[in-house]
């Protein structure tokens, strides 16, 4: 990251009556620029731009599920396994991803291309099973669709 990031964070801080409110958008930007996760260096840089301590930024990053403080794959696949999706077969979808990617939930493929997670309710209960691929929601996913999604990620 660079002066650009610093300047962009200053713009974000000006959107709010209190610049502290820019913590989430600034960390979101920092994570996006750092390949999907917040390294120590990234947190330091974000903290600098926000005029906060790195420890404060980490306390925020560790509270919210969408921030990652460990490396993640180039692509992030997140399967909702809350009740409505589970009633509709989310478990089969998770199994299919595990088989297709050759990893377990929580893991990343050896080549670092895909991280597989299960997540709490994504707010698509009537369109189960919901799978977020890089934060874009695929709806009505069935185990049979998984191979196609994985193939897409390899392209």
């Amino acid at each position: 990251m660079s002066a650009t990031f610093y300047d962009e964070v200053q713009t974000l801080r000006k959107r709010y009556p209190d610049p502290l409110s820019a913590v989430l958008p600034a960390l979101q930007l920092a994570q996006e620029r750092n390949g999907g996760w917040l390294s120590e260096a990234t947190l330091r840089e974000a903290a600098d731009a926000l005029d906060l301590t790195p420890a404060y930024c980490l306390s925020i990053a560790s509270f919210y599920d969408m921030f990652h403080t460990e490396p993640v794959g180039t692509h992030l696949v997140e399967v909702c396994t809350n009740v409505s999706c589970a009633l509709s077969g989310a478990q089969d979808v998770v199994d299919a991803f595990e088989r297709s990617l050759g990893i377990e939930v929580g893991g990343t493929t050896e080549d670092g291309s895909v991280t597989l997670r299960t997540v709490e309710c994504l707010g698509g209960c009537g369109w189960a099973t919901v799978v977020a691929v890089d934060n874009r929601h695929r709806l009505h996913v069935r185990a049979g669709d998984v191979a196609g999604i994985v193939a897409e990620l390899g392209e």
Binding site: S62, D65, H68, T69, E70, V72, T81, V83, A86, L87, G89, A90, Q91, V94, D95, V105, G106, T115, R117, T118, V119, E120
Partner: peptide, 12 residues
């Protein structure tokens, strides 16, 4: 129908 259901595994 819920057998084998996995709750989120956090990497946090």
């Amino acid at each position: 129908s819920l057998e084998g259901i996995v709750a989120p595994t956090d990497v946090h």
